[in-house]
């Protein structure tokens, strides 16, 4: 399935973590089912190619970005990545056998914490998802605010259960972030963003960037924590049927807790995003 959709195609996507790229080891990867090679020349310049043609290439936030089309806008701006009192580290790149849209939706979901991340991000019987707000911003981003959840070990620095506040933000179809209460510094929020590389409609690589307040934190713990959490999500994601995200409102059964997912699916529909999705009945395929 060729991606012909400009909203996705003419945009920047992460294809490699800079930490894995050396002059001796070019990286072969796939974006929208097209083979992409990433290499570093003798001057340290990173070049992306597809079938022998050079692609637009940038490096930012520790990742290599490219586009198979003509990017209509710049890479997402993340001010947290420039704050000196934060560790800014990559949380690793995970290959996941499901649509990237399913990964975004899982990232936006609090209801699974007590079951998938039990003992860490949630614990039975504290299972309630309280009502929260969802808005569409002027920048055409989805914002979910006032999301509260009881968490036993909210972060590597947490010393006990706390009520954590989350804010979720969907920048673009495959780019999603969260802000969550830092258990040590009052009023500060830690930040995680996922840059999802659509490999095919049913496979993706999930790259993550962690911007965590340094106080009380060890850099290595940060990556370890992200990998622990994501390794709990991965088997669930890979057992969702169908792999593509169904946009028909009657394909699955949403509940109030899924408010942000409902808005996300509608927003994808409104933008005719069908890559990695099953269009709703009556929508163009």
């Amino acid at each position: 399935m060729q991606c012909t959709h400009s909203f996705l195609f003419d945009d920047w996507h992460v294809v490699a973590d800079m930490e894995l790229l050396t002059q001796q080891t070019p990286i072969a990867t796939t974006l929208f089912e097209s083979p992409v090679t990433v290499q570093c020349d003798d001057n340290g310049t990173v070049i992306c190619e597809c079938k022998g043609s050079a692609l637009p290439t940038q490096t930012r936030y520790g990742f290599v970005w490219t586009s198979l089309g003509e990017p209509a806008r710049d890479i997402v701006h993340i001010p947290e990545a420039y704050e000196d009192d934060r560790y800014v580290v990559s949380g690793g790149s995970f290959f996941v056998r499901t649509s990237g849209l399913r990964v975004v939706e899982n990232f936006l979901d609090m209801g699974h914490f007590p079951f998938v991340h039990s003992g860490w991000l949630g614990d039975e019987p504290h299972t309630e998802v309280k009502p929260y707000e969802v808005t569409l911003t002027e920048e055409n981003e989805i914002l979910a605010t006032e999301c509260y959840f009881h968490q036993p070990v909210a972060s590597p620095t947490a010393t006990g259960g706390i009520e954590v506040e989350y804010t979720y933000r969907v920048y673009r179809p495959f780019t999603v972030a969260l802000y969550k209460t830092n258990p040590v510094c009052d009023g500060r929020m830690d930040y995680i963003v996922l840059f999802i590389q659509p490999v095919s409609p049913e496979t993706c690589v999930v790259h993550s960037l962690l911007c965590y307040v340094k106080e009380g934190m060890k850099r290595s713990d940060l990556r370890w924590f992200m990998q622990l959490i994501f390794s709990q999500d991965k088997p669930i994601l890979e057992n969702q049927i169908p792999r593509r995200l169904p946009l028909d409102p009657r394909a699955e059964t949403p509940i109030r807790a899924d408010k942000v997912a409902i808005v996300y699916r509608r927003w994808l529909r409104d933008h005719n995003v069908s890559y990695g999705a099953i269009p709703a009945q009556g929508d163009p395929r």
């Binding site: 939706e105 088997p235 057992n239 969702q240 049927i241 169904p246």
Partner: peptide, 11 residues
């Protein structure tokens, strides 16, 4: 398939 989010019930 769970009706909610399509996760396999066999897990």
């Amino acid at each position: 398939r769970c009706l909610h989010r399509g996760v396999r019930l066999s897990i």
